[in-house]
Amino acid sequence: MFGLSELAVVLIVVIAVLVAKKGPELARSAGKSARILKAEARAMKEESEATADTSPRIVRGETAAPAADGNAPGVQGPLGSATERTERSAGTPPQDPRP
């Protein structure tokens, strides 16, 4: 039968034949991918340099003073309003606000 060395030679010949057929196509594909990657990296670098030159964007807005119960107006905290917190701590069940 075949020994290990003969099997290795046959395997090398088969690989060489396959590479000879597909090699140029694989190299062309790898070259295209490398060019695309290089172009994208250059575009990202130019974009980051362009945004670094501009001043930061400032958004003007209004600030709401906190209400007496410590919450902003119109906003309930995680435990509800101050009245609801008092009712819960007093042991009475909260009132159903629906009619």
Score class of each variant (00 low, 15 high):
residue 13 V to T: 05
residue 64 A to E: 15
residue 59 V to S: 05
residue 67 A to S: 11
residue 34 A to C: 00
residue 73 P to H: 06
residue 93 P to Y: 06
residue 83 T to S: 05
residue 48 S to M: 11
residue 14 V to C: 10
residue 11 L to C: 12
residue 49 E to W: 11
residue 67 A to V: 07
residue 44 M to A: 11
residue 79 L to Y: 15
residue 52 A to V: 07
residue 68 A to I: 11
residue 15 I to E: 10
residue 58 I to G: 05
residue 2 F to T: 14
residue 80 G to S: 10
residue 84 E to C: 03
residue 24 P to K: 07
residue 40 E to Y: 03
residue 29 S to I: 09
residue 45 K to G: 02
residue 81 S to V: 01
residue 63 T to E: 11
residue 15 I to Q: 10
residue 13 V to P: 08
residue 49 E to T: 10
residue 93 P to T: 05
residue 32 K to D: 06
residue 70 G to A: 12
residue 74 G to I: 12
residue 88 R to A: 08
residue 11 L to N: 12
residue 6 E to P: 09
residue 38 K to A: 00
residue 14 V to S: 11
residue 64 A to R: 13
residue 75 V to S: 12
residue 81 S to Q: 02
residue 37 L to W: 02
residue 3 G to K: 09
residue 52 A to D: 11
residue 89 S to W: 02
residue 86 T to L: 09
residue 13 V to D: 09
residue 63 T to D: 12
residue 17 V to Q: 01
residue 78 P to C: 11
residue 36 I to P: 00
residue 11 L to R: 14
residue 6 E to C: 10
residue 96 D to M: 07
residue 69 D to E: 08
residue 26 L to H: 07
residue 11 L to P: 06
residue 49 E to R: 07
residue 76 Q to C: 15
residue 76 Q to F: 14
residue 55 S to E: 07
residue 11 L to Q: 14
residue 68 A to F: 05
residue 2 F to Q: 15
residue 20 A to R: 00
residue 88 R to Y: 04
residue 2 F to L: 15
residue 58 I to C: 02
residue 44 M to C: 00
residue 18 L to A: 09
residue 25 E to L: 08
